[in-house]
Simulated scan of single mutants.
Amino acid sequence: MKLENDTRISEFLLLGFSEKPELQPLLFGLFLSMYLITVFGNLLIILAVSSDSHLHTPMYFFLANLSFVDICFTSTTIPKMLVNIKTQRKVITYDSCITQIYFFILFIGLDNFLLTVMAYDRFVAICHPLHYTVIMNPRLCVLLVLVSWIMSALHSLLENLMVLRLSFCTVLEIPHFFCELDQIIQLACSDTFLNNMVMYFATVLLVGGPLAWILYSYSKIISSIRGISSAQGKYKAFSTCASHLSVVSLFYCTGLGVYLSSAAPQSSHASAVASVMYTVVTPMLNPFIYSLRNKEIMGALHVFFRGKP
């Protein structure tokens, strides 16, 4: 029987993780807790950086922006999932799905670019310390963040426009907890060759390019650290990069895990579970990675809440 195309569909169904009623309260409590930890932890980073003038440096300026983006990133998907679990409804309207795709791509792109900018900041600080304040001036810092926003917004807009040209079949079930771009493209009845080409090209250019720069930066950083004579100097130089390197590894490794799981056959459920790592777990862990061993962040928070150093 021929499937009927419908370019004016009104809604999709988000299948989520499990249809078992007994698991719904557990899933709701788990994801609500993770979401609140993510929002609260990243807000503390922003609060610490904005309240302490000693933290008004390029490194912490980029960190505050990353924390803001992580809050927005998780807020794009988790609240809708929580509502669906609570109401036992899996429906998401077509317009909401398109909007979710736009903001999801926007904020994950910003995460990618900001991590790259932060790698450049560490590269200049360690490899060109005498010129650091000249190179990483406030104007350049703002420009780097602005360019990151513009590039992410344009890429997200392009992907959305490519989705809007698609027509869909009567089967509109998304085996995921949010409107993931690849899953939406797979549901289309119209030709998706151009969509796939744009998606793959953007991935190579906008993910592969920044990743290559991060790897290059750290190769130079490691080379510079090896040239430091004292062990204490080596430790101090590496400690300034350790948190960022941990977050970069977590971000790209979880993203690679999602890609590999989605490429495997019969992997829809596995892909949804893997997606939790970079959509929920990574933004939740970032504040802990950046703050627990950072005396400046902890000191700023202590001063803010206690009112004294």
Rank of each mutant, 00 (worst) to 15 (best):
T133K: 12
T133D: 14
T133S: 13
P138G: 15
C141R: 13
V142Y: 13
L144D: 05
L146N: 13
L146E: 06
L146K: 14
S148F: 09
W149R: 13
W149Q: 14
M151Y: 10
L154P: 02
L154K: 06
H155A: 05
S156R: 01
L157V: 10
L157D: 03
L158A: 07
N160G: 03
N160H: 06
V163N: 01
V163D: 06
L164E: 08
L164Y: 02
L164S: 03
R165N: 06
R165Q: 09
L166E: 11
S167F: 14
S167P: 05
C169N: 08
C169L: 04
C169D: 10
T170F: 04
T170S: 07
E173A: 05
I174L: 00
P175W: 03
H176N: 06
H176G: 05
F178C: 12
C179T: 08
L181N: 05
L181P: 05
D182Q: 10
Q183E: 12
Q183K: 13
I185H: 04
I185S: 01
I185D: 05
L187V: 13
A188C: 10
A188K: 15
C189Q: 10
C189D: 15
S190C: 15
T192Q: 10
L194Y: 09
L194F: 14
N195R: 15
N195Y: 11
N196G: 13
M199G: 12
M199W: 14
Y200F: 15
Y200W: 14
F201K: 07
T203N: 14
V204L: 13
L205M: 15
V207H: 14
V207F: 12
G209V: 08
G209P: 14
L211T: 03
W213F: 11
W213Y: 08
W213K: 10
I214N: 09
L215E: 11
L215S: 09
L215F: 12
L215V: 06
Y218M: 14
Y218W: 07
S219I: 08
S219C: 06
K220A: 05
K220C: 04
S223G: 11
S223Y: 07
S224D: 12
I225C: 10
I225G: 11
G227V: 00
G227R: 01
S229W: 09
S229N: 04
S230L: 06
Q232E: 02
Q232G: 03
G233E: 03
G233D: 06
Y235L: 00
K236E: 02
K236Q: 04
K236A: 07
A237F: 05
F238V: 04
F238N: 01
A242R: 07
S243I: 00
S243V: 03
H244F: 00
L245A: 02
L245K: 03
V247Y: 12
V248F: 09
V248P: 03
V248G: 08
V248Y: 06
L250H: 00
Y252H: 00
Y252A: 00
C253D: 00
G255F: 04
L256G: 04
L256H: 02
L256P: 00
G257M: 01
V258I: 05
V258R: 02
Y259S: 06
L260G: 09
S262W: 13
A264W: 07
A264D: 05
A264M: 09
P265G: 03
S268G: 11
H269F: 15
S271V: 09
A272F: 12
V273W: 12
V273F: 12
S275I: 10
S275L: 14
V276N: 11
M277T: 04
M277L: 15
